[in-house]
């Protein structure tokens, strides 16, 4: 199958890229690639809800931002040596990535559970809009949350640590992020081929048939939404660490739109679709941004052409329409 080939090429490219960048003495390219990998991870999260679950969420920036703030809050307390909470029990901040990731995943999963339970009462366009509304609520909340900088956000001076790695070296941080992305992709592949994944797929295509075999499609979708939110939250924590900074812009609806663009650009419900989408988008942003102050015009035109003439996203264009997972 040709889409298998596309995935393999993508995989080899991601692994080989830093070697090329080091050889060409372009260390910034590694930072740029790290950005692409992290955004891809966020989109992989959304793809589970959107691609396989059929849940078009325009509010995934909420989870992305919650992950980011998990990093910002924990690390800023560790940096300032002030406890996060003293009562009823003492909680200290931390600069350890694994702990931050765990908190980010739990917090965004919890938020996804709450938002999902309420939002899944609606369908179609209403679902798009109610997820947008929840995103906007969190966005405005973050802007006025002075304890953590409001619109100025929270910045930390040194990237958080991971046992055995020096995360300040771009290539090591890249490796770490790529490792996480590949791990999540493997999980993603396992999930869609599991009984849960098959039931979820069926729930999207015909809810009634799922109901007749005694499953509740809403619960399947809620589970997918929570998993999806948790992954995007993890990406948010990494993104904040990449920038050593978190601010409400991570929660903005434009961010939700961008994550969605990665998914659609690459191809929905395809394992590597979000990865292709994020990589292409970051590359475009980088190369067009250097050409003209008005590069958004060209970006817009290009996106438009892709939607109009390359259905099934870029992977669909390269690999032909059928055959997606």
């Amino acid at each position: 199958m040709r889409w298998g080939l596309v995935n393999a090429v993508m995989l080899i490219g991601l692994v080989a890229f830093p070697f090329w960048a080091l050889a060409a003495d372009e260390p910034f390219m590694i930072t740029l690639a790290t950005r692409a990998v992290i955004l891809a991870l966020a989109a992989v999260g959304l793809n589970i809800a959107l691609g396989w679950g059929g849940l078009v969420s325009l509010g995934h920036a909420a989870f992305f931002g919650i992950g980011g703030y998990a990093m910002g809050i924990l690390a800023s307390h560790a940096q300032g040596y002030t406890p996060l909470m003293e009562w009823p029990f003492l909680i200290e901040g931390t600069k350890s990535m694994p702990v931050i990731w765990l908190v980010a995943v739990l917090a965004s999963a919890l938020a996804a559970l709450g938002i999902g339970m309420l939002s899944l009462r609606t369908t179609g366009v209403y679902f798009i809009m109610i997820t947008l509304a929840f995103g906007q609520m969190l966005y405005y909340f973050a802007i006025s949350w002075t304890a953590y900088g409001g619109e100025d956000g929270v910045s930390i001076y040194v990237r958080n640590g991971f046992p055995g790695l020096n995360t300040l070296v771009p290539v090591e941080f890249y490796g770490l992020c790529l490792g996480v992305l590949l791990g999540v992709l493997a999980l993603n592949a396992a999930v869609i081929h599991s009984p849960f994944g098959l039931a979820l797929n069926a729930a999207r295509q015909s809810p009634d048939r799922v109901r007749t075999v005694g499953l509740d499609p809403r619960r399947l979708q809620l589970a997918a939404f929570v998993l999806s939110g948790a992954i995007t939250g993890l990406a948010g924590a990494l993104f904040a660490d990449l920038n050593r900074f978190v601010s409400p812009s991570m929660l903005s609806w434009q961010m939700s739109g961008e994550i969605m663009i990665f998914v659609i650009l690459g191809g929905t419900a395809r394992l590597f679709g979000p990865v292709v989408g994020a990589v292409v988008f970051v590359a475009l942003e980088h190369s067009l941004g250097g050409l003209s102050e008005y590069w958004h015009v060209f970006l817009g035109a290009l996106l438009l052409l892709i939607v109009l003439f390359a259905r099934g996203g870029l992977i669909g264009l390269v690999a032909g329409r059928g055959g997606g997972s």
Binding site: G257, M260, I264, L265, V297, L299, G300, L302, L303, L308
Partner: peptide, 13 residues
């Protein structure tokens, strides 16, 4: 989905 993406592109333009 396609509509959202295409009209988002129009905003940029």
């Amino acid at each position: 989905l396609d509509q959202v993406l295409a009209t988002f592109a129009l905003i940029l333009i």
